[in-house]
């Protein structure tokens, strides 16, 4: 039971990150490798605020703002000039940006892991298992954010414009949608989600270093691919699935050293059986 809840809360974190990946992929048709490192930026923003005696709530706000700005700046400087270039070029630039963020933060904050304390919320007895409040908080807030996002995309003008751009960029442009602005908004939302994920991540693992974002980033991308990239419910499903699998693997002694292998193995198997992911939509290629 405990394992399941831990898995779910880790899954919620992965899902939040995966949402950022999947939205950007759906709309800009590019793999934002730097997304994981935006999480790291958010974590450091939180740390700095806490070190300056700021309240935790202020820290969360600062972290979200910093990440959003970072997301927009990255998009403007690195990706926008490459609109229309080959996917390979964009992908390599994204890797470069990821490296840039990591090395800059290492130069500023140092490579050594820094401890961070985000209050202790105690534990709650639920269904006969001791579950920490932070786990529950992660689950509840994570679900609320995802629900809000779904409503935002379905109901608002901007949200529907996003769907339109992801389905056919050219047609969207002809319909008077400002594609560049939509892509910018997507990056902003994705980065804000990454900031939320960073707060929850630090609740579970209270230490941060410049490479903090890379592993969760890669795993969240795996989750996004498993769920079907470009599909928002798919990202949630994939994230939760991956989180639960990771925790279950870690709890079985014989399997625990091979957790990474199992997770990525799952990715390869899913791609082999169903290349579009669990909830992905098949796209026909036009010449």
């Amino acid at each position: 039971m405990n394992i399941l809840f831990n898995g779910l809360s880790l899954g919620a974190i992965y899902a939040l990150i995966a949402l950022g990946y999947t939205m950007v992929y759906g709309i800009a048709k590019m793999l934002n490798f730097a997304h994981g490192d935006v999480i790291m930026v958010g974590a450091y923003a939180l740390l700095v605020t806490l070190n300056l005696q700021g309240h935790i709530a202020l820290g969360v706000v600062v972290s979200v703002v910093v990440c959003t700005v970072a997301g927009i700046v990255i998009e403007k400087l690195a990706y926008k000039p490459l609109r229309g270039a080959s996917p390979l070029a964009v992908l390599i630039t994204a890797i470069g940006v990821s490296y840039l963020l990591q090395s800059v933060s290492q130069l500023i904050f140092g490579a050594a892991p820094q401890p961070i304390t985000i209050g202790n919320f105690g534990t709650v007895n639920l269904f006969g298992a001791e579950i920490s409040t932070s786990t529950i908080l992660t689950l509840v807030v994570g679900s609320v954010i995802m629900a809000c996002l779904t409503v935002f995309i379905k109901k608002t003008r901007t949200g529907r414009a996003m769907v339109a751009v992801s389905e056919d960029r050219g047609a969207a442009l002809l319909m008077g949608i400002n594609v560049n602005r939509i892509i910018m908004i997507t990056f902003a939302i994705g980065s804000a989600l990454a900031a939320c994920a960073s707060v929850f991540y630090l609740m579970q693992i209270p230490s941060l270093e410049p490479t903090l974002g890379s592993m969760p980033g890669i795993k969240a991308f795996t989750a996004a691919v498993i769920g079907g990239i470009g599909s928002i419910p798919g990202a949630m499903l994939g994230g939760v699935l991956l989180g639960v699998i990771e925790k279950v693997c870690l709890s079985i002694p014989a399997l625990s050293p091979y957790t990474t292998a199992v997770e990525f193995g799952l990715l390869i198997v899913i791609l082999l059986v169903r290349p579009i992911g669990l909830l992905g939509k098949k796209r026909r290629e036009k010449v």
């Binding site: 690195a78 000039p81 490459l82 270039a85 080959s86 070029a89 390599i92 630039t93 890797i95 470069g96 940006v97 990821s98 490296y99 840039l100 990591q102 090395s103 800059v104 290492q106 130069l107 140092g110 490579a111 410049p210």
Partner: peptide, 22 residues
């Protein structure tokens, strides 16, 4: 920590060259 400088250079090379070419 200065070792990060090496990766900073790598990052700039990657971004710079791809932007320049594309």
């Amino acid at each position: 920590d200065l070792a990060a400088l090496k990766y900073l250079i790598y990052a700039l090379i990657l971004i710079g060259i791809v932007l320049f070419n594309n």
